[in-house]
């Protein structure tokens, strides 16, 4: 049997239908991306009046800059921890909320509403909670004998950022995990109950593998979140302090480009970031996705 491809006679109409979307992608993605690549090879004066082609000098400078290396490592560690902790916490909450029989809806609402809080607002809230003079949590840490000071201590500042970023990300993961759990047929869980006595073993051999596609999807989402969307939190909470210890790659692009007016270096960083995301996504879809689907 030969598969005959259905061919419809068409003129310009289908292209007109997809044109709006293409225009949006072109204007808001391809054009800025091309602009960034172009600018990463230029050296511009701070007023934006003149620029000259410098080749790979911006990149060379970046790789010899120790603060960039530090930011790179901080971003990786930060993203890894935020993703891991928020995923683990959300999974635990979803499993527990799923097994609750009474007031299941209330639990769901309570565990999801944080999702609606804008990052900047969350940052502001956290700013007050962690404030050294009036912050409740700062006070609590101090009372416990931990001289908590995110202004000067890189560990404290990172700890604070991770805590807030995780708090902000748990609801999204929770919703997806709960949906994933509820899509596992009840009879499958029951068959497993007959086959396996231990709750925890059953979770790791049946439930968790069945959630693998969800987990993989969430991993991609969470890494992207930690990379890019924590900008608002960092800007309201630490602005990269102390001494650039909490500067993620994205925040550094902003700092160097918009505050430092070094558009060439900032563009070069954007390009590296772009490549990094491409590589990460390619790896994830090529190697991991193949294993998680059953």
């Amino acid at each position: 049997m030969t598969a005959q491809k259905q061919k419809l006679p068409h003129g310009i109409t289908p292209y007109l239908f997809i044109l709006p979307q293409l225009v949006i992608i072109a204007v808001f993605f391809f054009w800025p991306a091309a602009q960034a690549v172009h600018m990463s090879f230029m050296l511009e004066d701070p007023w934006g009046l003149a620029s000259q082609f410098v080749g790979f000098e911006n990149y060379a400078l970046l790789f010899s800059d120790s603060s960039y290396g530090r930011s790179f490592i901080f971003t990786l560690v930060f993203s890894f921890l935020v993703s891991l902790i928020s995923l683990a916490l959300a999974l635990l909450l979803a499993v527990k909320a799923n097994s609750v029989l009474r007031a299941q809806k209330s639990y769901r609402v309570l565990l999801t509403w944080v999702y609606a809080v804008a990052p900047a607002v969350a940052g502001l809230g956290a700013y007050f909670i962690f404030n050294r003079q009036i912050g409740v949590l700062s006070q609590a840490f101090n009372d416990m004998g931990w001289a908590f000071n995110p202004e000067t201590d890189p560990f404290d500042a990172s700890f604070m950022l991770i805590l807030v970023a995780v708090w902000k990300q748990v609801p999204v993961n929770f919703i997806f995990f709960l949906a994933g759990l509820q899509s596992i047929p009840k009879s499958l869980q029951e068959a497993a109950q007959i086959d396996c006595q231990s709750d925890s073993k059953r979770f790791f051999t049946i439930t968790f593998p069945l959630l693998a596609p969800t987990s993989f999807f969430l991993l991609v989402i969470n890494l992207t979140y930690a990379f890019f969307e924590t900008f608002g939190l960092i800007d309201t909470l630490t602005q990269g302090r102390p001494a650039g210890a909490t500067t993620t790659l994205v925040y550094k692009v902003y700092q160097d480009g918009f505050l430092g007016a070094d558009l060439g270096s900032s563009s070069a960083q954007s390009v590296i970031l772009m490549i990094l995301v491409l590589v990460l996504t390619a790896i994830q879809f090529r190697f991991i996705e193949r294993r998680v689907h059953y």
Binding site: A191, A192, Q193, I194, Q197, I206, P209, L210, A212
Partner: peptide
């Protein structure tokens, strides 16, 4: 007793095979 301790085996309507 818990289901696993009862020495029973069950065949379900939708088979309930572990898909992974």
């Amino acid at each position: 007793l818990a289901p696993a301790k009862r020495d029973i085996a069950m065949v379900f309507q939708n088979y309930a095979l572990y898909p992974h």
